[in-house]
Every structure is written in C-alpha cells, then in structure tokens.
Design a protein around this nucleic acid. Sequence first.
DNA 1: CGGAATCCCCGACGATACTG
DNA 2: CAGTATCGTCGGGGATTCCG
Lengths: 115, 115
Amino acid sequence: MKNKHKQGQLRDVQDVIDIIGGRWRGAILASLCDREKRFNDLRRDVGEITPRILIKELKYLELNKLIGRNEEAPTKVSYYMTPHGKSLEPLIGAIVAWGRKHREVILSEPLEVTP
Amino acid sequence: MKNKHKQGQLRDVQDVIDIIGGRWRGAILASLCDREKRFNDLRRDVGEITPRILIKELKYLELNKLIGRNEEAPTKVSYYMTPHGKSLEPLIGAIVAWGRKHREVILSEPLEVTP
DNA sequence: CGGAATCCCCGACGATACTG
DNA sequence: CAGTATCGTCGGGGATTCCG
C-alpha cells in the first residue's frame, strides 16, 4: 500500500525536522561545521543561548551521532562534527535552495490583508 | 563574511522547517499530493486532528501558496496542491532519503541506557 | 458540511544562581 | 571552564461546543 509507505516517509521527515528544526540546532551545527569548538566558544558563537539549553541540544545532537564530544580534561571539552553530521550539509543546501525560491514566490504576489 | 551568509541560510532553513515541520503539515501535504480533497476527507485522512487545528494548518499552507482552496459551494470546499506545493516533493524525497540513512546509523550501534 | 469561539493543559524554553 | 538545579513563563495544540 502506498499509504503505509507514506507513513514511513512522514516518520523520516519528522525525524530530520526534529534534528535541524529547533531554534538552536541549526545554528549549533553550522557553527561546528566550521571547525571544532569548546563549550563556551559555542555559547558565544550561537548567540544568546543559556548553558542549560546548549548542553541539552548538544546532548541531543550527540545522541543522534551528528556531533562528538571530546573531553581532554574536566575543564576542556570540545565538540565536533561527525562524518554523519557532515553528511547533512548537502541536504541543508537543498533546503536552503528551496527556501530561497519559496521566499520569492511568497513575495512575488501581494497578500490580502485581513479586513 | 561567511557568517552573515550562514545566517541567511538559517533563515531559509527555518522557513522550510516551519512549513513541513509541524505535526500535521507534512501529513496534510502528503495527503493532498495524492489528489485534491474536501475538508472532512482530509480530516479522516490525516488522522486524529481536530477541525480547529486542521483549518489553521490549511490557512497557513494556503498563505504560503502551497495549497489552494476551491469553494464551489458554501458546503463544498476542496483543497489542492499548487505547482509551488508540488515543487516540494523532490525536497521531501531528499529529506526522506537522509532520514532513512540516519535511522540506520542510529540503530547500528547500541545506545547506553541512562543509569 | 465547513468553520469559528472558548477554555485549558502541558512541555519546551529561558533566567538565574550554584557546583565540581 | 563545563555543567547542573530550580523556578517561572508562554504559547502551541487539543477537547469541546456552537454557528451559517
């Protein structure tokens, strides 16, 4: 049945959405994509994120094997992209491309304002 | 600066995420992808969604020109995919592909259970 | 049948302060 | 420096009910 197939696809989509969809995850991945970073570097890099949220997002991303954690010393921890994490880049590229096109479509026609 | 560029990309990603990321939007789009549907058809098709949420999601998708609304009579309204909406399909395909691969990666190694 | 109004709940997110 | 604990809030959904 095609419907069952579609259900499976939806699950996949939801998973991916969950990974890159949060307010911070995209930014974190983008930052780490550049190069490996330490906790507080990341904190500054990402913007105004609180440590609680940052550590939570990092754990999530680590669980999903998109990033790795490297604890050289208790006060020296680095996070880095895994190969799997890096494999996200082309996908992000495709999403960005469509998003750009989408913006054009939306802006190309006037919107009716609610009366 | 590369960072500014990345910020723009993040915006695009967030937009796309917003479109297909909700709990229902993906399912709605998938359902309409098949063929045009009436309100209550959609309601059954999508699962246990309440009318309030459905109408809200439909309006959002319509605003974003992904679907169209066709009111033949006050009691006969159909929704259908626009060409722009259909242009999402390849992107969804790419996302599904990555999601599938991701699932394999996640399942391929044992997870440590929290103590 | 298609849609709108009301009420409510819960879970994600945030600020702040503290510890190893 | 890296991470945790506690508390507060805020808003997206959901159930239910009613309207044209």
